[in-house]
Amino acid sequence: MEKLKLKIIQPQKIFLELEVDDVIIPGRDGDFGVFYGHTPFISVIRPGVLEIYNNNELTKYALHDGYVTVENNLITILCEVIESADQIDKSRAELALERAEKRIKSNQSDIDFRRAENALKRAVARITIS
């Protein structure tokens, strides 16, 4: 199988640069897979789990924001925050999850709903991979 190039860039550094078989990306409207020969494409990312498959090996990252472009079999992910499993403090993520759930359930009009929802998604992504 032909390989895709994957580049994950952060403002402070290039987080990752390698060749992969395929990638599952958490898009704003749902997860999608990118295989070799994908059409040129740009999508906004929602907080979620990024799955990278290479030689039947799966690596997962918690991806928090940003966007992804696909062109000529090069996947470029630009994000401000991305974490690998060993960088995550699970108990902290669980606390954050609880907090976010409470916030959304409280249903008060003064909370920033979108922000709470994003916090919830981030916490879920962190817990899933840790």
Binding site: P11, P40, I42, S43, Y67, T69, L78
Partner: peptide, 26 residues
């Protein structure tokens, strides 16, 4: 500038919004 025809997801406006966000931050 890439001359490829990109598909936008969810749509062009949201992509521009996210790009703008990131652009100002950086």
């Amino acid at each position: 500038v890439s001359l490829l025809d990109f598909l936008y997801e969810p749509d062009e406006d949201e992509v521009i919004e996210e790009l703008t966000n990131k652009y100002i931050n950086v």
